[in-house]
Nucleic acid binder design. Sequence first.
DNA 1: TCGACGATGACCT
DNA 2: GGTCATCGTCGAA
Length: 196
Amino acid sequence: MQKLTKDFFLNDSVTNVAQELLGKVLFTNINGNISSGIIVETEAYCGRDDKACHAYNGKITKRNEVMYAQGGIAYVYLCYGMHNMLNVVTNTAGHADAVLIRAVEPLEGLSYMLARKQTSKIERISSGPGNVCKAFGIELIHNETDFGGNELWLEENPTHFDFEIRASTRIGVDYAGDDAKRLWRYSIKDNKWVSK
DNA sequence: TCGACGATGACCT
DNA sequence: GGTCATCGTCGAA
């Protein structure tokens, strides 16, 4: 098992990182309960010129300031009053880029995921950004968590496998005008854990 | 202070 | 296809 190194996150191209994160493994250790899963769907957000991004045009608020930090930490925020969203902050300090983790294929800790979601249905338990956080126990307190730590981290996939990347438009960003048309949502083609 | 609004998901017809 | 739960954040007042 090999954790992703710091320079993985410092890449200047957030769309490259979003694609490279596919196939990587997300881990959480919540009160000693370890869950993991393969990232199968991501979306890129770029502060510099992307209206869909919370940090568009240099906007800085208490919520999004973590996006301006050096890459390699988590940006977690509450959406619609009930769903947490997990983002991976990328690029060097001062560049507000982040990758939203939209769907994961479960590996370990399925029983913890079922318990957190209070369900017995495995189907789509970690498909969709709100479900990823719920299943993995990620909450607002994990905002700014360093991916180099032992609570929330990312690893290379120990099993090498080939897959085709599918690019499509991002979800729920219609307000962003032309930027909503960007093909910045990436998924592993034909993977059943990709969100609908 | 206060009102409007989400980078959603579950369940309904 | 449609509705609605639910609350932190933002920006206007």
